[in-house]
Design a binder for these strands. Structure first.
Lengths: 200, 200
DNA sequence: GGAATAGGAATAACACCGTTATGACAAAAT
DNA sequence: ATTTTGTCATAACGGTGTTATTCCTATTCC
């Protein structure tokens, strides 16, 4: 069984592997993450990756899991006011901001092709759906306030998610590079337009 | 200078490398593409990749370029009727169909993180924008017919592209796996909803 | 026609990668 | 005190992209 703490209060190797791996992906991209580089960075041997995670793919999955947690934190940090529609827009802004702060990590989270081309597991999909649930809740609030006509909040939030995710991915790919104010001139109008489609 | 044809009418090695690389990515994923595997498949040595393309990344760029060409073909094959709105919907359906037929290739085309984490060049972005231009033209037709209120067709098409791309990416990642009729229940309603926001 | 030349391709090597087997070592459990 | 168990270091295996070198062949020039 896992040693609780080896007397010394140093952070466990597992934690440091996770943190450093996330750092490497975030700062230098997925290609910079290798067992040898990681082991050197943490100050251990490549075996640590296998004793603690079972292999590099599983470690990446753990990093992805933390990425979803960060995203959830970003979204949860958005304050709820008495203007549900503005709150929903802020949710979109926070969603994009998180992807911008961790572009490589975001790409790994949703980019099914990267890092050996593994597919997301049921659990990872569930973590993504948790993000989606926040959009559903925000949409439901707008409907409950009578700003949008009542309807299938999941379907509407799904459309919202597609637009958000698509915009973020295109932006990360390099489109909108010549756009100085993508948030004000693309993201917000997009959400406003979706809103107008459902108002009344 | 490049030999025009070595007397024999066999397809040039460069062409076969390109075709086989696209096949490998399409059928087995990006991870299956390696210089040695490719050389063996084509019946040459790994050096061919370097003499013809300069390296694996450049070859991948060439494959991506062909992927954009395929996408353009798919979209150009959509017949234009006297119902511009229906045509635009068909454009979206064709867009998704192309991504479904070549999921790995589509992911490489837009997945900035995959295969060594290279960034798209200006030229590749331009090829993607050509796809975008088709959406702009389709949108313009709807506006010209008076179905949508006249306005910035580029902005509207951009929103359309975000939604389309986001939906396709999420679908390829595994969300919507439990949805038997994603086209009818997600994609088409999404486009219809965007349409209603702009009608009048 | 023969020689010079240039470009394509094969071989082998280098450094790196993920992974695994082996063994040493220290902390728990008995 | 001894056994057990989890952790990590070392070294090896097969694989990767890339490069230098060499050979060969087809074109080009005279």
């Amino acid at each position: 069984m896992a040693r609780v703490s080896p007397r010394t209060s140093e952070p466990a190797v597992r934690e440091r592997l996770l943190e450093t791996a996330a750092e490497l992906i975030t700062e230098e991209g997925p290609a910079a993450l290798s067992t040898r580089r990681l082991a050197q960075e943490v100050g251990t041997s490549t075996m640590a990756v296998y004793t603690h995670f079972g292999g590099l793919p599983q470690l990446v999955r753990a990093v992805v899991s933390e990425g979803f947690a960060r995203l959830a934190e970003h979204l949860a940090a958005v304050p709820m006011t008495d203007d549900p529609l503005a709150d929903l827009a802020e949710l979109g802004v926070a969603y994009r901001a998180n992807a911008h702060d961790n572009p490589h990590l975001y790409a790994v989270m949703f980019g099914s092709a990267s890092l050996g081309g593994y597919r997301l597991t049921r659990d990872e999909l569930a973590e993504g759906r948790y993000t989606f649930d926040m959009l559903v809740a925000g949409t439901q609030r707008v409907m409950d306030a009578g700003i949008w006509k009542a309807g299938d909040a999941e379907a509407v939030a799904g459309q919202l998610w597609c637009s958000l995710h698509g915009f973020v991915m295109l932006e990360l790919a390099g489109y909108y590079d010549g756009e100085p104010d993508a948030e004000g001139r693309v993201l917000l109008p997009m959400m406003a337009n979706l809103a107008s489609a459902l108002s009344g």
